[in-house]
């Protein structure tokens, strides 16, 4: 598959949590061809991003939905459940980014480890859903993770299915970095080293030069760009106008976020190569 140029942005205006304003920003993001919308950012706590992801899932169709999760105001059991639900509701378009600020050293990494262990407690092919035999699932595919980290001890299994993506796409921000060796996406500023990740997105301003960035993409220096929005809807229109031509090469509508962005599940992060499979049913439901 063609290597996609990834377009990403973060929104952290409190008004994004008001339905009319939120919908305007989400529509502008999809119109601009954005791949990822990161809700919330380090240093700002305008809303609970996981709640807004759930709301955005049914009113968007292509956009990757990334929740910032503050390490100090969340528990991996709750986070694993919320992101699993949202990944189902969005057909595999979920991402997350753990914000370490204010947390003791290692807490954000522990959050990532615990949630990953909970998602790995459910096998991709756990569900059977066979009405005739009465077997709902294959219990041999469900494991207690017994995760035992420095901050979080979580027995499991979690009462949430493995997400369709396997694990939601993990985004690490170089300016609020956490020590994860196998993140999916790193955000970094020019001149600084990007955290380890499958793909690297350069943080740029809306008026950055698309041709120059395209050249750096072609040279393999970057995999795309990330914008820090302060006036979501207006800036997204400008982004669409200036950068839209760079993303026209990856429109495959049916694919999930990992397929579309070329982000296979890291084998170091997950005990299985894929996400949950829901058996096809023949219910009398119209």
């Amino acid at each position: 598959m063609t290597r996609p140029f990834i377009l990403s942005a973060s929104v952290a205006e409190a008004s994004f949590a008001v339905p009319d304003d939120g919908l305007t920003v989400l529509r502008a993001a999809e119109d601009a061809g954005l791949d990822l919308l990161v809700m919330g950012r380090a240093g700002e706590r305008p809303f609970d991003a996981q709640v807004l992801l759930a709301w955005a899932a049914p009113v968007t169709s292509r956009l990757g939905l990334v929740a910032t999760v503050p390490a100090t105001n969340a528990h991996p059991f709750h986070v694993a459940r919320a992101l699993s639900a949202i990944d189902f509701l969005s057909n595999g378009r979920t991402g997350w980014s753990v914000i370490p600020e204010g947390a003791p050293d290692g807490m954000a990494e522990d959050m990532v480890g615990a949630a990953r262990a909970l998602w790995d407690g459910w096998g991709s092919e756990t569900l059977i859903l066979d009405k005739a035999s009465g077997r709902y699932l294959d219990a041999s595919k469900v494991q207690a993770s017994n995760y035992d980290g420095p901050f979080f001890k979580v027995a499991g299994p979690v009462n949430a299915m493995r997400p369709p993506l396997g694990h939601p796409v993990l985004v690490v921000d170089g300016e609020a970095s956490i020590a994860i060796a196998d993140a999916d996406i790193a955000l970094f500023v020019d001149g600084a080293a990007a955290p380890a990740a499958t793909k690297r997105l350069l943080k740029v301003a809306v008026d950055a030069d698309p041709a120059g960035l395209r050249a750096r993409f072609d040279a393999g220096e970057i995999d795309g760009v990330h914008f820090t929005l302060t006036d979501g809807a207006a800036q997204l229109a400008a982004i669409g106008a200036r950068f839209g031509s760079l993303v026209t090469t990856h429109a495959d509508a049916g694919a999930d976020l990992r397929q579309r962005l070329g982000l296979p599940l890291p084998t170091t992060a997950s005990n299985q190569p894929g996400g949950a499979v829901i058996p096809a049913m023949h219910s009398e439901f119209a």
Binding site: Q50, V51, L53, A54, W55, A57, P58, H78, R81, A82, S84, A85, I86, F88, L89, W122, I128, G134, R135, Y136, L137, D138, A139, V158, N159, A160, M161
Partner: peptide, 17 residues
Amino acid sequence: PERMAMPTLDPVSLLTA
């Protein structure tokens, strides 16, 4: 259990959607 419907997804997420 193998014969009971589960798991339950996160209610805040389902309701907000």
